[in-house]
Design a protein around this nucleic acid. Sequence first.
RNA 1: GCCAGUUUAGCUCAGUGGUAGAGCAACGGUUUUGUAAACCGUCGGUCCUCGGUUCGAAUCCGAGAACUGGCUCCA
Length: 662
Amino acid sequence: MQDERKTLDDRNQMTDLERLRHSCAHVMAAAILRLWPEAQFAAGPAVENGFYYDVDLPHRITPEDFPAIEAEMKKEIKANHRFEKIVVTREQAIKDSESGRLGGLSERPGNPSKFKLGNLAEIPAHEPISYYKTGDFIDLCAGPHVMRTGNIGAFKLTTVASAYYQGDEKNPQLQRIYGTAFKTKAQLDAYFQMLEEARRRDHRKLGAEMGLYTIDTEYTGPGLPLWLPKGTAILEELEKLAKETEFLAGYVRAKTPHIAKEKMYLTSGHLPYYAESMFPPMELLEEEEHSRKRDLEAQLEALKQAAPGGNGEPPPGPEGSAAHREYDQKIHTLTEQLRALGTRYYLKAMNCPHHHRIFAAVPRSYRDLPLRLAEYGCCYRYEQSGELFGLMRVRSMNMNDAHIYCTPEQFAQEFNAVNEMYLKYFKIFGIEKYLMRFSTHGREGLGRKYVNEPELWLQTENMVRDVLKNSGINYVEVANEAAFYGPKIDVQVWSVIGREFTLATNQVDFAVPQRFGLVYRDRDNTEKTPLCIHRAPLGTHERFIGFLIEHYAGNFPLWLAPEQVRVLTIGEEAPLVNYAQALVRELRAHLVRAEGDYSNDKINGKIQQAEQAKVHTMLVVGPRDLAANAVSVRVHGRGSLGAQPKAEVVAGILAAIRERRP
RNA sequence: GCCAGUUUAGCUCAGUGGUAGAGCAACGGUUUUGUAAACCGUCGGUCCUCGGUUCGAAUCCGAGAACUGGCUCCA
């Protein structure tokens, strides 16, 4: 069964490859049923790199079972069954689900197709209901499919994972079997070669090999990267680029602490809604408050224990009864008294509230706007342990953050300038494939998921949409995914091996400045609330560098390379070493990250080491170079470029760095 | 957080109940060099942690931690 949320129109647009993969999912289901007839299937769509089918089965399928499943699949394919479409009534479909026939090879009395029943309920009343039959296997499915199982070319099962039925964590967990399929064996092989290349470029692997960062889970903690000197070199180059770019774009810089009082996040509205994603607070108590706190906690505990069941259950009786109200009131009072004790500080999960307080620090006039406040702020988010992923998902992050406070009249120009900054960065880093996901609100979420300002939502969304349309930027619009205070744009990029990253977010905020009481005095001498644009074109250092490592496969351009130049001597005679050392000193005097290798290794060995360390430029100096006041240049990945006059080489290196040549 | 898998030297990995191994790296020495690895030697271990089974555990069992692949979430 395909993903039910897709419309029939979407289905008709399935590509040939998607049809083939979805058909392969049916074949896999039939094969699994031959081995385990009691298996219950949920959904089995084609996905980006293949297909999966969610199955409920007492037997835990492991990769060791794959050969047996694949063997059964090959039989299904060899049998060359026709994909036969059968249109049925909803009543018939329900009947066949109850008999266990759907997603089965035959009727299975006492084992109804429970997930198929659930899927049926999701199909809108007006849509036709169809089965697809291959051999004995019948599945609820809207199609489309390839004509015959024999049309499925080359396939392979890849992994098994767990997934919730219909993606809801309240639903039962199913085993998700992933596979991939292509028209030809050659395409399948190419896909696995691509995966191998992706593994080779994995930023976690390269990050460790190149000594860029380490995650010391025992002493520092999971998700808290330690930047090693070589990674820090990259990080600081990026920061320099951002600071220059922002300076030229009229930004001013700010610097704010890593922590703030609870009041900050109560005002911003992040607490309590965001509390789960924040590190728990640091609580500062005065001497006498400690005993007061223990006392209040004991009272609260006693109150909960005294309740029937002793586990904090409210007293029996109807909701809203006097007993209920009294109990709730007592709990509320004690909780409030506890809250009033001492001061709680939170590690900041975002910089915006701090910047809002900077805006509020002095009276603002319309003449001061737009105010573009930038900061490389370090934020902390308590991401769930299973979500941590190398540098891509961490708990401490350095954000390329800025907030632009402006009037509605200035908005379009400011927002457009932000987008242009994104495009400028994409050019510098050679990012060719990107997509801006413009997320708007959903009317039904107003007042809950989104601040209840229907007109402001429409107004700001129109402004954003106009800017995107007029700028010719590549974007899509998705409803009901906005931030709670305004529409947002997620910037997605694809690395050269096709891995997708959400690099940065760009948000419009028309609500929080109001909560902080931010105002400027306008021409007409009235106070008005500014709009705020949150933007972070380079996202966080962590994720951006993770992306860059994979994008460049660790082969950074000269300006970013942790070790830009290494001077290698042929031999260790004093005149040669002196010449090499003077060259290193000269480069370092121009702030080039240059090192020297004057050891007694063979020159081939030194080159091997420098190449493996991905040093960008290797300058080989031997007796011949010394005599000619030259150096022999070798560039990582490009091989030897021959001997050149020393002064020209140095000037060339400095120019390439200054211009940030790719 | 949930499901599954993994965890042996700094790194990559071998070792299925009986004395813990290899290559690379590191360190010491020999070699004196022209564009991807000269040679010899030395050092290096809480086999993730805790508990259990056993005469005996890297190996079998249980709990925990971290990581990996997914789910949910997200910059």
